[in-house]
């Protein structure tokens, strides 16, 4: 649901270009793995949390970013606590939390279109070896169709429950894959129908 995560705003964070945000994330992510002091990591965590307030993101939404990884973070904490120490377990969990929160802050304060455009601009120097427009369209399509594929999966599950079938990964996967491939074919036709013709790779059409 990436496209639904953006929170409207005019804060400093919203105004920074996507390229600078992505570069900052790479630097922060790399830097965090060199920090071995719990106090400094805790300080980083406090700074990132304060950035959420600066960007006008409510605390509830901030906590929601950590929820999907919560179980994983708990497992990491337990494993590290028993195999090493409480300090190291806390340090590692805080490090991951910093990384997740920093990446989420970028998603929450950057429009999908700006993000895709930023990636396209960043890849421009590689245009001789990389079909830049296709790469950015691919990213955009992935973002757009994540919720659609989720919806298809739900529909297939409900149809199977309605016919008395309990959860069966293969019975769900096969129709979902078939419907997704069919949809992909139709979407590619829709894209070509709207004049996406930059050196098309469409063997059937070039016959």
């Amino acid at each position: 649901m990436l496209s639904g995560l953006y929170i409207e705003g005019t804060t400093f964070f919203h105004r920074i270009g996507p390229g600078k945000k992505i570069l900052s994330l790479v630097l922060i992510g790399t830097g965090l793995f060199f920090i071995r002091d719990l106090t400094i990591i805790a300080g980083c965590f406090a700074v990132i949390v304060s950035l959420y307030f600066t960007a006008g993101v409510p605390a509830k939404i901030m906590l929601r970013q950590l929820r999907p990884a919560a179980i994983l973070l708990v497992i990491i904490f337990i494993v590290q606590y028993f195999s090493n120490s409480l300090e190291l377990a806390t340090l590692i969990v805080l490090r991951f939390a910093c990384l997740i929160l920093a990446a989420s802050l970028i998603t929450l304060t950057t429009r999908t279109s700006d993000m895709v455009e930023g990636i396209e601009r960043g890849l421009k120097p590689l245009h001789k070896i990389l079909p830049v427009e296709r790469v950015s369209l691919t990213i955009s399509l992935c973002i757009r169709f994540i919720p659609t594929i989720q919806a298809i999966t739900e529909e297939v599950k409900e149809a199977q429950y309605a016919r008395g079938l309990s959860t069966n990964i293969f019975a769900i996967a096969v129709p979902v894959i078939i419907r997704t491939l069919k949809m992909a074919d139709e979407i590619s036709e829709a894209i070509y129908a709207r004049s996406f013709e930059t050196e098309p790779y469409h063997p059937d059409l070039d016959k």
Partner: peptide, 15 residues
């Protein structure tokens, strides 16, 4: 196209 979901392939209406 017959199925609008096939044709709306960008995240937002404006895009």
């Amino acid at each position: 196209f017959q199925d609008p979901d096939d044709q709306l392939f960008c995240p937002t209406v404006a895009e």
